[in-house]
Amino acid sequence: MVFLKAIHIIPFLLILFEKCQTEKCDRIKIGKDYYKRTLIATIDGYPTGMVIDPRTDHIFFLLNKRNYTKGLHLLKHGSLGIKQLSVADDMIGQCVAIDTANNIIYIGTNQGLVIYEYSKSEISSERPIGDDDIRSIFIDKSDNQMYIITGISREVFKFMNGTTAIKRYEKIPKAYSFVLDSKGNAFYEYVDGRMYFFSADLYEPIQYKGFTRELKYVLQLNNNDEAILGVKGCLFKLHTNNILPEKIAQFGFKITGIAFDTKNNIIVGTKGKIYRYKPIEANDPCPPDDYFMSNI
């Protein structure tokens, strides 16, 4: 009798074991692929403007708490510490962009463009480029052209022929954020709180449908040269042949930052946490944790 009871218990234990294994993997489907989620940092606030240095996998982000900003921070790959990047007392760091072709890390401040150097572990503010109030930076990887969004009016300018001279970008006069793909298609959040695209084949911008105004959009290009948009707890892919965004994922939290590294991992920030989503291989459905955990 005892032996028969044991036989009935074994299948139950196997089911319980498989369930635990599945829950431990913490998978999510993004697009057509499955990803494993790993918590890599807990922070006091929420991250925005996330950028990854492809040479080091270090993560730069702006730390926000309630209604004020706690400055730019650096989360080094493999490190347990998160460092705040200090700038001169009369400057405020507001955004980061990485010129991968020339290995330069640009910091946008309220008084111009400055450079961060790992060797000195500081932001060089001795010779800022210009004196504009820089709110956002975008570097086009196809031609290494750099664009900036300035001031409270959010006007868009581009640097001319590798010089420090800037010219108004007529295609997008004003925007909170924007990206350009390699085909010259522009995707941007206009100052009216709506999302638009300006196709290289058209003569005027087109508004995306399905979004309400005054949402906090998070706009980035992924490694496939696709415009990815974070809205509340969802990810969307934007196309130029359809005014309806394509929903590709839904998270259980509000997205405040997105970045893509060279290993096809997706870094996602939310209130109090930064996650890494790693593609799951068919022969390794539940890969071990191989990243790092840090705290502020």
Rank of each mutant, 00 (worst) to 15 (best):
I206H: 06
P47R: 00
D201W: 03
Q220I: 09
K32H: 14
N242Q: 09
T100W: 01
N265T: 13
P47C: 05
N242D: 15
L244I: 13
G130K: 03
L14N: 13
N110P: 04
N64C: 07
K36H: 10
I266K: 00
Y190F: 15
Y188D: 04
K65Y: 13
K237H: 08
I255D: 06
N161P: 05
K24Y: 14
R276D: 07
E170K: 04
H8K: 13
I139Y: 01
A259C: 15
I107K: 00
C25K: 04
Q220V: 15
E226K: 10
T42S: 14
T69G: 07
L235I: 03
S199P: 05
P288M: 03
I296G: 05
I30T: 02
K76M: 06
C25A: 15
K5M: 08
I243F: 10
E18Q: 12
F3Q: 07
E214F: 15
K237D: 06
T22F: 15
M146K: 05
F61N: 00
N64I: 10
A97M: 03
C234E: 12
G31N: 04
G193S: 02
E226A: 07
E23R: 11
T69I: 12
R168K: 14
I274D: 00
M160P: 14
E189Y: 02
D284Y: 11
G71S: 01
I267A: 06
P54D: 01
Y68W: 13
R37I: 05
I206F: 13
F198Y: 14
R194H: 14
C20S: 14
L39S: 10
T48S: 08
V179Q: 07
I166M: 11
L238S: 08
F60Q: 00
K65C: 12
G78V: 09
I98L: 05
F17T: 14
L72I: 15
K254C: 11
L229K: 01
H58P: 12
N67A: 07
A186T: 06
D140T: 05
I107E: 01
L113K: 02
E126P: 02
R135Y: 09
L80C: 09
M1W: 06
Y277W: 06
K273T: 13
K174Y: 15
K158M: 11
Y46F: 14
V114G: 03
I258N: 04
T38I: 08
K254N: 10
Y291M: 11
V51L: 02
V231H: 02
I82P: 05
H77G: 09
A101N: 14
S182G: 10
I98N: 01
I104R: 03
I228L: 01
E155V: 05
F159V: 03
F178H: 05
G130L: 06
I166Y: 04
I258P: 10
Q84H: 09
Y68F: 15
N283G: 09
V268D: 00
K24P: 08
R66Y: 10
T270G: 10
L63H: 03
I134R: 00
I82R: 09
I129F: 12
E281W: 13
D201A: 11
P279A: 07
C286W: 04
S136P: 06
I123R: 00
Y169K: 00
K83F: 12
